[in-house]
Simulated assay, not measured.
Amino acid sequence: MRTEDLHSLTGAYALHALPDDERAAFERHLPDCGSCEQESLEFAAAAARLGLAATVSPGPVLKDRVLHRVTTVRQVPPGGGTVERARRVVPRGRGLARWALAACVAAAAGLGGTAVWQYERAQEAGDRATQAQQRAEELAGVLAAPDAASRTVRLADGASGTLVVSDRQDRAVFLASGMAEPPAGKVYQLWFDDHGTMRSAGLMDRGRGSQAVLMEGDVDDAAGVGITVEPAGGSEQPTSTPIALMSMPA
């Protein structure tokens, strides 16, 4: 599919309305398109809120009362007595109505639970989107800081890395370009070098060779930055020889 076509699928994706081939194509596109990711999250949140607004969950008293009545209503035994006796036991119309009411209550309860679940997931997605937006703003703030200083180094296989530091903001950003994907089950981890003691500064996205990473934590008086290959999820301390070491830019 063309990229411009993929941009138009955010709403259908949020509503799980895409066929498998289009869904797979859109999910391949999503990690590289922040606007589509944000729009999909917003559509999902809106759909969940609409579903919740259209659903009325029955009160526990009504539900218990209906389910109790269902268990006490006798059914007409097959061939068991005359029509008149059967009607005295339970009129057919009333029995069907009770079963229909019970089914409606159960369905309403299920739909209410589904809407609540969707709403909670949408809230979580919204929280993640908000956090991502805050990090993006902080990252842009470091790059645009008047006192931002940078240092670029060559990495393996023609890749490069640029370290940008703002002393005033006490934050750092690492810009990667053309880095090879780490081995299966591994991830690149960034470290602040506190004069010989390595302090974790976060993980890089293993699926992106070129990316901008807002490093976690304050720069403080770190002397430099290192990159190691670590098990998925990262390590408390480096477990491999650094593939790059950079001193702080002047």
Rank of each mutant, 00 (worst) to 15 (best):
A148F: 04
A212T: 11
T55A: 13
A24N: 04
R85N: 10
T152W: 02
A14W: 00
M179G: 01
A129Y: 00
T241E: 13
L18R: 01
L9M: 06
L96E: 14
A24C: 04
A17E: 13
R94H: 10
E216L: 09
L111I: 12
R151N: 01
Q38F: 07
G207M: 06
P231F: 11
M1N: 14
R151L: 04
D20G: 10
Q211E: 14
G217V: 08
L96T: 15
Q75Y: 08
R135E: 14
A17H: 04
E137G: 01
F174W: 11
V90H: 08
D147I: 08
R23H: 03
V164I: 11
D170N: 14
L139G: 11
G185I: 10
S210Y: 01
A129H: 05
V187N: 06
T197M: 04
R87F: 13
A103N: 10
L190E: 05
A109M: 09
T71K: 13
G202M: 05
A223S: 14
S200A: 15
R171A: 15
V56A: 08
P19V: 12
D205L: 02
Q75H: 13
R88S: 07
E230D: 10
P182E: 12
W191A: 06
R171H: 05
A244P: 03
G34D: 13
T82I: 09
D147R: 00
P31N: 02
V225F: 02
V153W: 00
T114G: 10
I243C: 05
Q237R: 15
G79M: 07
H7V: 09
A109Y: 01
R121K: 05
A107F: 10
D221F: 06
H195V: 05
A145K: 00
L41F: 08
A145I: 06
P238Q: 12
R171V: 07
M215A: 06
D147W: 02
L111T: 15
P249D: 01
L245N: 09
R208T: 10
G196M: 03
L155D: 02
A14K: 00
R151H: 06
A132C: 02
V116D: 09
G59W: 00
E4F: 02
D194S: 13
S235I: 08
A107E: 14
P146R: 00
A47V: 08
V70M: 11
R69T: 11
H16W: 08
T72M: 11
D157Q: 05
W191D: 03
L41R: 14
